[in-house]
Simulated scan of single mutants.
Amino acid sequence: MATPPPTGPLCTRESIADELLRLGVRPGETLLAHTSLSSLGWVSGGVVALVQALLDALGPDGTLVVPTQTGDNSEPSVWQNPPVPESWWPVLRASMPAYDPLTSPSFNVGVVPEAVRTWPGALRSTHPQASFAALGPAAAHLTTGHARDCSLGERSPLGRLEQAGARVLLLGAGYGSCTAFHLAQYRIPGPESENSFAVMTSQGRRWTTVREPSLDSSRFEELGAAFERDTEVVRGSVGAAESRLFPLADAVAYAERWLASPA
């Protein structure tokens, strides 16, 4: 069976960077990007060209941040895609490699985060499940001090991104992937849950459990639609990708009010 011809539009590093600037990305700013490469169309150079374009738009004084989460480093008894036999659970807890910022691949967050985390000069935070990687002058400040019991809260890069006046870029990605909303969940009283993972300590590899607020993104698309209705969000296209751009602090403040209201 013949392979169907590619569908456009045809995007290049230069065209993507130009469209990012027209969307409103500012040279020198700090940008938390959630991306879908496939949504752009046919990209000459693939993921490398997209990362280059993001860096081109931000310029040498800007900082690019992406989520590089490793959700596979987690308690095997709660795995669903797929679930694994109960007899495997103790073996997995004992054998799962400890998180290493340099070598642990990102999991289920797309190809752009994996490209950024392996990019020359990239820095990555140390949370075993919810790390972020950054490229640019602010990378060290944004990625240091990520507490193990604060995956997406105040003592994570999200807290520092808010303080730094960062903006969020949803490039072909929906509000369901907007990690900034999780920062709001840490500020609203609610249930906690246990969170387990393999870490490296001064005594060697350890299976560790911490308690954190329970995080749930199931209503994020609904939350995002309300945020966009009530707040100024820049919208436009990059290639074929529907894209949005907004201040992270605005999204967090709105989410705090919206999530605290009765459903």
Rank of each mutant, 00 (worst) to 15 (best):
M1P: 15
A2I: 08
A2P: 15
A2L: 12
T3W: 14
P4A: 06
T7M: 12
E14P: 05
S15K: 06
E19Q: 14
R22H: 11
L23K: 01
R26A: 12
R26L: 14
P27K: 02
E29Q: 10
T30I: 15
L32R: 05
H34I: 03
S39T: 11
L40M: 05
L40R: 05
W42I: 04
G45I: 07
V48H: 11
Q52N: 14
P60C: 00
V65S: 07
V66I: 13
T70Y: 03
S74R: 11
V78F: 08
V78R: 13
V78H: 15
V78A: 10
N81E: 14
P85A: 12
P85Y: 11
E86I: 10
S87G: 07
W88D: 08
W89S: 02
S95M: 14
D100M: 04
S104P: 00
S106R: 06
V112H: 04
V116P: 01
T118V: 08
T118K: 13
R124Y: 07
R124K: 06
T126L: 12
A130V: 14
L135D: 08
P137W: 05
A140M: 06
A140C: 06
A140S: 12
H141T: 15
L142T: 09
T143M: 09
T143W: 01
A147W: 04
A147Y: 13
D149T: 04
S151W: 13
S156V: 13
G159Q: 07
L161E: 07
E162F: 00
R167T: 03
V168L: 09
G172K: 12
G174S: 15
G176T: 05
S177G: 14
C178Q: 03
C178E: 00
A180I: 11
L183G: 10
Q185Y: 09
P191W: 05
E194M: 13
N195F: 15
F197P: 09
T201K: 05
S202V: 13
Q203N: 11
G204Y: 13
R211M: 09
E212G: 12
D216R: 12
S218C: 07
R219A: 07
E222N: 10
D230L: 08
E232K: 00
E232T: 01
V233W: 01
A241I: 00
E242N: 04
F246E: 00
D250K: 06
V252Y: 03
R257S: 14
L259S: 07
A260E: 07
A260T: 04
S261L: 10
